[in-house]
């Protein structure tokens, strides 16, 4: 009988040995987390799944390189963030076309007002990439500053500052757009 992969470290070790069952377990464990972070960072519902699959492909390829210095989720987050940002750079359309319509268009969403959607879209769009990434990871993924610092390979103070500046910029942008409204 196949032994069970209790913790994440054991699981990734098994994946490194090209264990199909362990890999399936790992994908099952992290697929929701990965697809949602890709969706939030790319703002592209259609391609978020493709980017997320690419993330797991990289995890499979690089499983041997995981040393266990950070948590497995942090390592996977890092891959997901890097691939999502690469996707944005390649597409060069971050938040420009797909962001508002693609992720705020579900019937149960609070955003009912098209004008408000536009305001939020523009406000998020106005943030620099580093601030936006840190903001999304903190605000929507609910990650701690320490975790974000590990994912983005930055210092804790840099992350604190980025998130603080992102919030201020968002506030200013929203106020400015409210005035115009």
């Amino acid at each position: 009988m196949k032994k069970s992969s209790g913790n994440d470290y054991e699981l990734i070790q098994e994946v490194a040995q090209k264990d199909h069952e362990a890999f399936q377990k790992l994908v099952h464990r992290y697929k929701r987390m990965v697809i949602n972070v890709c969706f939030r960072l790319t703002g592209d519902r259609e391609n978020a799944e493709d980017v997320a699959q690419e993330v797991f492909f990289r995890v499979y390829q690089k499983a041997k390189a995981f040393r266990g210095r950070s948590r497995l989720s942090t390592w996977i987050y890092r891959i997901a963030v890097n691939l999502s940002l690469n996707y944005n750079r390649k597409q060069n359309n971050f938040f420009q076309k797909k962001y508002p319509s693609a992720h705020f268009n579900s019937p149960d969403t609070i955003l009912e007002n098209k004008e408000d959607r536009q305001i939020i879209k523009k406000a998020l769009d106005s943030l620099p990439e580093k601030q936006r990434t840190a903001f999304i990871l903190h605000h929507w993924e609910g990650l701690s500053y320490q975790e974000i610092a590990e994912i983005l390979k930055s210092s804790l103070s840099a992350i604190e500052s980025r998130i603080h500046r992102a919030k201020r910029s968002l506030k200013d942008a929203l106020l400015f757009m409210m005035k115009k409204k």
Binding site: K31, R32, I35, N36, F39, R40, R45, A48, E49, A52, H103, F104, S106, D108, T109, I110, L111, D116, I120, A123, H139, W140, L170
Partner: peptide, 11 residues
Amino acid sequence: NQLEYFPEIEP
């Protein structure tokens, strides 16, 4: 508050 909520998607 609208910014607080971001719908989740399912794989």
